[in-house]
Amino acid sequence: MPHLRRYAVFGGVYSNHLALEAVLKDAARRGAEAVYCLGDLGGFGPHPDRVFPILLDHGVHVLQGNYDYAIGHGLPDCGCGYTDPRDNHYARLSYNYTRARTSERWWPYLRSLPPLIRTEWAGQRVLMAHGSPRRVNEFLWESTSPDAFLRRLLRDHQADVLLVSHSGLPWQRRLPGEQGGLVVNVGAIGRPANDGRTEVWYALLTVDTEVRAELVPVAYDEERLAHEMRQEGLPQEFVETILTGWWTTCLEILPPRERSRGRF
């Protein structure tokens, strides 16, 4: 009987230090022996500096998201590439706040993060990326990522298991066919998954003879986060998302299927 191992993988912290602590606690309780973060540490939430010591104290393996790259290099915007003026407005507010409040001492850390993490679990080649292995800001949504395309990504990037984030909505798929393969979007722990629930989601990977993923919802003190966001003058629309579980901004990126499930 092979030894059973567990790993926790999350993404999209978005400065939500309270959710980060709750997820790390949950992962420890479930016996995760290593924890991975797929990037985007800042944005959206309050006090961006608070997440860094937590990640370092817990020895979390962190890779670089597009936001981390932008803040670390002092870019003028997050490069999210929205076309809707309303989305751009909120993206700018969020980025300007995060950039202004991220201490300069963390910039080299953000710059130093690797774009990809590779490891091996149960003989499976595991690849972790922020958006996709080929582009940091590529969205892999469940309804717009066909099996054939995911197979191509695994083939092109020599992986059997692919773990990504960036889009903020968690899903997983075991690919049918001879080649097999497992693709998991671990979601984001910084804000709810546009499902009307206030919990945030991460992935728990169980490894024995194979790799299996479980998407785990985690509750945290969202009222306290909302209070901090208000105190920091962050937009009411962001606070509303935290308190209701429905996305209120940056909706244009959602494919029609995923968007139709949301309120806005």
């Binding site: 717009t144 990522s145 066909p146 054939a148 395309f149 191509r152």
Partner: peptide, 9 residues
């Protein structure tokens, strides 16, 4: 052919 080439959309 598209299936073999891994077309996305």
């Amino acid at each position: 052919e598209a299936e073999e080439l891994g077309v996305k959309e």
